[in-house]
Simulated scan of single mutants.
Amino acid sequence: MISTWSEWKRYPRPGRGENLEAPISPGIYEVRYAATGALHSFGAVDNVAQALASLPVGAKSWFGRRDKAELPELEYRTCATSTKADAKVVAERMVGRREAYMSGAA
C-alpha cells in the first residue's frame, strides 16, 4: 500500500532543537532547497526517518563542525509505503515523469 505525500516541512538545522517528522518504515523522501525548489536529495529507503537523519546537509569546517552560515535552508516531504519494493516502484515512476517533463521543456 502506498500513502500520500506529506506536506513540505523545514529540515531541522543544528542548534535549533527541532526534530524530523518522518515514518519509521519503508518509503520515499524528497529534500529540496527552500529558496529555489531545486532538488537536494531523493530516495526510496527501508526507514525514511533514519535516511533523512543521516543526510549530509552542509559543509564541514576544518575542525569537523558544520559551519552554520553555509547550511542551506532545506525542506523535506515523505511518502510511506508498505514495502521497500513499493517505494522503488513509486520512485521510478517519479523519475520517469521528471525525465519526460525535462525532455519536453528542453
Rank of each mutant, 00 (worst) to 15 (best):
G37C: 01
R65F: 15
K84F: 02
R77W: 10
G58W: 04
E70N: 13
K84M: 06
A80T: 12
G37S: 04
A80F: 04
E7W: 01
S25Y: 09
G64A: 03
I28L: 15
R13C: 09
C79V: 00
D86H: 13
A44I: 10
I28E: 00
A100W: 06
R10Y: 09
E7Q: 11
G37F: 02
E73M: 10
N19A: 15
I2W: 10
T83V: 04
L20S: 06
G104D: 03
K88M: 15
S54Y: 12
G43D: 08
I28Y: 03
A80Y: 00
E92V: 01
E7S: 04
K84W: 02
A34Y: 04
D46N: 14
A35F: 07
T36P: 03
E30H: 05
G43E: 07
A80P: 15
R97A: 13
R16H: 05
R98F: 11
Y76N: 11
T83Y: 09
Y11S: 00
Q50D: 14
R66A: 11
V48H: 01
I24S: 13
D67Y: 06
A91I: 04
W5N: 09
D46P: 02
V57E: 06
A106D: 00
S61K: 07
R65N: 08
K9D: 02
A51E: 14
